[in-house]
């Protein structure tokens, strides 16, 4: 009972965070890059979160710092999932041959620390948010391919897929009619997990100083640049950190609920006793 209430509260907080992240920059707030006071000014009515390490409005910076992050994560998830679906379904249906080799390479790549790969790929184009997006997409791709490939391979052993392939239905017809509808829930859950990982990676990239350079706000970077003053003025660190926590935990719980085995397929009604 309390779990359900907690879950609902977290979902509401998640939606609110997404809203702040995406629509925040349109709010009538002071400029996030302009100095409005001394560093680490305490919270007041006009500046609810006080000022940051350089004396900029902490609320404005927090509100501006989420959009890039969320958009990057969303775009990386979408791109990764689409490519993952295409490669994964084809590789899953293939029996041996080069596509199975693809899956083996992908398995190896998935074990290399994602943060390291993100850093190494994004390091080549410093100061570019797009480079971070590309790096995060490439990192999340092996996981998508692996999960979708495994789900498809499981279906490929079932009689209806074998029958369709045996009577000569095209590979894409089989994927469209037989595979995609039946792996949809797994694919959505996987996309949810990828989004969580992408959010973490994008935030960490900001923390490490990748992506758009200094004055631009980014929740990851806000946590780092204001950590020095956290003893005196916690809000400039706490606000972006809390938003990141809500984003991460909310998405995790939502994805957990999608993947939990309690949800049964509808067509189990007619199981003869």
């Amino acid at each position: 009972m309390t779990r359900a209430i907690l879950g609902r509260l977290l979902t509401a907080a998640l939606l609110l965070t997404m809203l702040v992240a995406l629509a925040g920059p349109w709010l009538p707030l002071p400029s996030p890059t302009e100095r409005v006071g001394v560093p680490f000014e305490p919270a007041s009515w006009s500046r609810p979160f006080g000022t940051d390490v350089l004396g900029r409005d902490a609320l404005a910076r927090t509100v501006h710092g989420g959009r890039t992050l969320v958009l990057q994560a969303l775009a990386a998830t979408a791109l990764g999932s689409i490519v993952g679906l295409v490669v994964g379904t084809c590789a899953g249906l293939a029996r041996g041959g080069p596509l199975k080799g693809v899956l083996r390479v992908v398995d190896g790549l998935a074990a290399v620390p994602p943060l390291l790969i993100t850093l190494l790929i994004a390091a080549g184009r410093p100061g570019s948010d797009f480079a971070v997006l590309v790096a995060v997409t490439l990192v999340s791709l092996p996981f998508s391919v692996r999960v979708i490939g495994a789900a498809t391979a499981r279906l490929a052993g079932l009689a209806y897929v074998r029958t369709a392939l045996a009577r000569g239905d095209g590979r894409f017809a089989v994927i469209r009619h037989d595979v995609l509808p039946n792996i949809a829930s797994e694919a959505w859950a996987e996309a949810g997990l990828r989004f969580i990982a992408a959010t973490q990676l994008c935030a960490t990239a900001g923390f490490l100083g990748l992506g758009a350079p200094a004055p631009a706000a980014n929740w990851g970077r806000l946590v780092r640049e204001n950590a020095v003053g956290a003893g005196a003025q916690p809000w400039p660190v706490l606000a972006p950190a809390l938003l990141l926590v809500v984003l991460a935990l909310g998405m995790t719980l939502t994805a957990d609920r999608l993947t939990s085995p309690v949800r049964r397929p509808r067509n189990e009604r007619n199981t003869a006793p």
């Binding site: 209806y160 029958t163 369709a164 000569g168 017809a173 009619h177 039946n182």
Partner: peptide, 30 residues
């Protein structure tokens, strides 16, 4: 294409033999 149609395998387990997300009509059409 013609020869592969001349043998049809009707599986033991009718639940696994039919796509659970496809109507019977659609399966027959295909």
């Amino acid at each position: 294409a013609a020869d592969r149609l001349s043998v049809a395998h009707v599986d033991q387990d009718s639940r696994a033999a039919l796509n659970p997300r496809e109507t019977v009509g659609k399966a027959l059409e295909r």
